[in-house]
């Protein structure tokens, strides 16, 4: 009986010790760096291969869940909404031979593709939507990235409470993936402000935070280490993995 009591108290104290020990280790820079090392391995092994599953029309979520930040509370964005994005331009610049500034009608005049794919949020939930728009690869091909181009950065129109703007980035392989879209429509209608109007990036092979909303500028770069927090994205700067295929 004494032994069982001893055992029960040992097991419970061992269990109760996990969280405080783990929390203390989490605050240790060397350990935190060590456990981050799996990220490179995951990117190397999984990477960008294959195609995301495409679904039939019947699978669509008609009220597609709104993820991330709400509609930008920003005078410029509000003026775009007021004039139905007539003055909006999608700028493509950086390490490219030919810079572009696309109006919304110009994007609509490009070849359009449609995909019904699942959006997997980092929180754990999933929703299915029908996305239509322009292949990012078409826009990049028109811009002719220079030889030093490595990543494509998406600058967005929303900011958090501290005024930090949202941005995201993809490597060229993911950017040229045939399912990586600059989507203009969701479930048969033009994107509404909550879902990222007028242009939302759509990356079905990675988690939802990669699919940046309210994109205003696409910047091709050799490195993103001098941008904002240097980790290649708004959530990445807050500790989330840059490679979000897992």
């Amino acid at each position: 009986m004494k032994r069982r009591l001893f055992l029960a108290s040992t097991i419970s104290s061992a269990l109760a010790a996990c969280s405080p020990i783990g929390t203390a280790l989490n605050n240790n820079d060397a350990f935190h760096h060590l456990i981050g090392s799996a990220q490179g391995l995951n990117h190397l092994l999984i990477g960008t291969r294959g195609l995301a599953r495409e679904y039939p029309l019947s699978a669509i979520d008609r009220n597609f869940r709104v993820n991330g930040l709400p509609t930008p509370d920003d005078a410029t964005y509000e003026s775009y909404v007021a004039d139905r994005f007539a003055s909006y331009r999608l700028v493509v610049d950086g390490a490219v031979e030919r810079k572009h500034a696309y109006s919304l009608p110009a994007l609509r005049a490009m070849p359009q593709v449609t995909q019904i794919t699942r959006h997997d949020c980092v929180e754990g939930w999933s929703a299915i939507g029908e996305w239509s728009g322009v292949r990012l690869s078409d826009v990049l091909a028109a811009a002719h990235p220079r030889a030093d181009a490595r990543y494509v950065v998406f600058h967005c129109m929303d900011r958090d409470d501290q005024g930090t703007p949202y941005y995201e980035s993809l490597d060229l392989k993911e950017a040229y993936h045939p399912q990586t879209l600059l989507s203009l429509r969701l479930n048969g209608s033009d994107l509404d402000p909550d879902h990222g109007a007028p242009v939302r990036l759509r990356v079905p092979t990675q988690l939802g935070y990669k699919s940046a909303k309210w994109v205003k500028r696409i910047e091709v770069v050799g490195s993103f280490s001098n941008l904002y927090g240097g980790k290649g994205g708004y959530w990445e700067d807050q500790g989330y993995e840059w490679y979000a295929g897992i």
Binding site: S19, P20, T23, N26, H32, G36, A38, V122, G239, E241
Partner: peptide
């Protein structure tokens, strides 16, 4: 919190732990 790592809510670090110790 007494059963999670980190104790406070932190999805990014929870994933960091999980994807390392899974290996």
């Amino acid at each position: 919190g007494w059963i999670t790592i980190p104790a406070y809510q932190d999805l990014a670090d929870g994933r960091r732990w999980h994807l390392f110790f899974a290996w």
